[in-house]
Computed example of a mutant assay.
Amino acid sequence: MSSMVVTRPRPLPVSSEIDDWASGICSCCNDKADCCLAFWCCPCFACKTTRTYGQCLCLPLLDIFGCIPPVTMSMRLSMRQRYGIKGSMCTDCVCATCCSPCVWCQMSREMKYRQLP
């Protein structure tokens, strides 16, 4: 007779404090290696960042099919909610639409700043 082992996922930490982003959206010089990868191959960088955040590796590839990148916008919104960062959905939409590589770089820097495991 075999027994089934069930493991429950750990809850994600959510901050209740209101904070700002650790770096600005155009602070790419803070991490030049990530900035270069995001500039030359944004889909690869977005997939790498998404995997580090704990989501499906290929999720950012869905952004290719729309004019407003839904995955970039939702990842930014999720990160703002998880870390208690000030902002709005409108700002997330504008940033994701106008400068997607900068948004991915900013999210990567934020995870490094917050030391996401």
Rank of each mutant, 00 (worst) to 15 (best):
M1E: 05
S2P: 08
S2F: 09
S2V: 05
V5H: 14
V5D: 09
V5F: 09
V6Q: 13
T7V: 15
T7Y: 14
R8S: 05
R10W: 11
P11M: 02
P11V: 04
L12E: 10
P13K: 00
P13S: 07
S15L: 06
S16Q: 11
S16G: 15
E17D: 08
I18Y: 11
D19N: 07
D20E: 13
D20H: 15
W21G: 02
W21V: 02
A22R: 06
A22C: 10
G24M: 05
I25D: 00
I25M: 04
I25C: 11
C26P: 00
C26E: 09
C26D: 03
S27T: 10
C29S: 13
N30A: 08
D31I: 01
K32H: 06
D34H: 05
C35E: 08
C36F: 15
C36Q: 06
F39D: 07
F39G: 05
W40I: 15
C42M: 13
C42F: 05
P43T: 04
P43E: 01
P43H: 06
P43A: 04
C44R: 09
F45G: 04
F45Q: 08
F45V: 02
F45P: 00
F45W: 10
A46H: 05
A46T: 09
C47F: 03
K48E: 14
T49I: 02
T50R: 04
R51E: 07
T52M: 04
T52P: 00
Y53E: 07
Q55V: 02
Q55G: 07
C56I: 11
L57E: 07
L57C: 15
L59Q: 12
L59S: 11
L59A: 15
L62A: 11
L62F: 15
D63R: 02
I64G: 01
F65C: 10
G66K: 01
C67M: 07
C67R: 14
I68M: 08
P69F: 01
V71M: 03
T72C: 13
S74W: 07
S74N: 11
S74T: 11
S74C: 10
R76A: 04
R76G: 02
L77K: 12
S78W: 04
S78R: 09
S78V: 00
S78C: 06
M79Q: 14
M79F: 13
R80T: 06
Q81F: 05
Q81E: 13
R82K: 10
Y83H: 12
Y83E: 10
I85T: 09
I85K: 01
G87L: 01
C90P: 00
C90A: 14
T91D: 00
T91I: 12
C93H: 01
C93F: 13
C93T: 12
C95M: 13
T97K: 04
T97P: 06
C98T: 09
C99Y: 07
S100D: 14
C102T: 07
C102M: 07
V103F: 05
V103Y: 00
C105Q: 11
C105G: 08
Q106Y: 00
S108R: 12
E110P: 01
E110F: 00
K112Y: 02
K112N: 12
K112T: 09
K112A: 11
R114C: 10
R114M: 12
